[in-house]
Design a protein around this nucleic acid. Structure first.
Lengths: 223, 223
DNA sequence: CGAGCCTTTGAGTTTCCTCAACCTGAGTGG
DNA sequence: CCACTCAGGTTGAGGAAACTCAAAGGCTCG
């Protein structure tokens, strides 16, 4: 569990203790939601396998995807402050998560000093990632955003032992668009343009990266 | 100090204890930086008075403002994970901050159980705010972004005892633009348009909100 | 009071969106 | 087994939004 569910940085004994409280696992089928915005926060979740998206919906119905989450990542942290979930989490494919119950956590954290730090670190990382997205949405053009997205997916998949050059996107063009602040047609056109330029091969959701350096250039050689 | 430097939620005795460790204050003059990205994190900072901006710069020189920070807010939390600052913090006007040293904090947090929770809550709030910005940048049009910005400033100022309808923007059009993912000319034009529509009065950086409901409509009646 | 920065406003251009048609592949029922 | 359906994806044409470039006016600060 330890390796899959919480990132490195804890001692072996601590991991053993952790294992004793995190025995609960939940399966989430494609399209089902793990939690919804506004629900009381009873736990955070470490993804064992599968991909989930987190998204928020405004009063007027518009929706924005705030993240795609791969195995090994922890979701639900954004609700810790108000003790209620700040977004929806939906499975993009059948997935399984470890349930880290919050009341267990609180009683345990006294005995596990490293756990507090672990959570601070996770939350801080989430803040940093959000800030990277702010740059992406605030100062990049469509082309650059999509290139950044591809590189980001590649790196995260690679860090989890998958191929960094060939993978399957678990989300639709529309979902990518929502995440990147673009329309689905724009995403589709850009994929086609990247393919034409010899940077990638793409057939449906199967992506093969041909020229990684070229893709990185797309968002570094601007201005 | 307590009221000014850390939000509510701590008991009176805890506040007294806090006061004993947070005696250090720093003045930051307009244009000076409090900390820079990459510097080792030795403290977080609670703003006593003045306004600061946090911003990040990419390799290619592009810069994005990630937040404007008013008195009472805590900055520097985004660096807690890596123990080094994840952004620059620059004063928009002469300001003073309380220095919350991290080593003091760690030794103290054992004796102050509420402090840990306090920090989790602050960080979680920061994540939520970033996610609101993601929606803003990802799915709103220029007009809506600026309206949301005005309402946000108004509410935060009001919560701090200032007027909610009349205030001075401490940042330039360019800085507002960077924050909202717009160019300075666009920001300027939109202010003029809002004024023409009778929603606000604006002269340089002095804003007077005439029709708050109208401004809120700008970003609720879309689609 | 002058220099430099900030702001406003205009004209033209680019980027991305909208609308629309058509294609593809997976799943379904006859 | 094949035709059908339907969601997702591609591609094109036209238009709207925001950007770029440019010029001129206004504040602020030394």
């Amino acid at each position: 569990m330890g390796q899959l569910c919480l990132p490195v940085g804890m001692s072996q004994q601590d991991l053993v203790k952790m294992d004793t409280i995190v025995q609960e696992r939940v399966r989430v089928h494609k399209g089902e939601t793990l939690y919804r915005m506004g629900e009381p926060l009873s736990a955070v979740y470490a993804i064992r396998f599968g991909t989930l998206k987190t998204h928020v919906t405004m009063e007027d119905g518009r929706t924005q995807i705030t993240g795609f989450h791969l195995p090994g990542e922890v979701i639900g942290l954004d609700g810790l402050g108000e003790m209620q979930h700040a977004s929806d989490a939906t499975a993009l494919e059948d997935a399984e998560v470890c349930v880290v119950r919050f009341d267990d956590l609180q009683s345990l954290s006294n005995h596990l000093p490293s756990l507090q730090g672990q959570f601070l670190r996770l939350m801080s990382k989430e803040i940093s990632q959000d800030q990277v997205m702010l740059i992406t949405l605030g100062s990049m053009r469509a082309e650059e955003r999509l290139a950044a997205f591809l590189v980001n997916m590649s790196e995260r998949l690679s860090a989890r032992g998958y191929s960094s050059t060939e993978f399957v996107l678990r989300m639709s063009r529309e979902e990518i668009g929502s995440y990147l602040g673009l329309k689905l047609e724009t995403v589709s056109r850009l994929f086609s343009r990247f393919a034409e330029a010899g940077l990638i091969q793409i057939r449906q959701r199967h992506v093969k990266i041909i020229d990684m350096a070229g893709i990185k250039q797309v968002y570094s050689r601007s201005c």
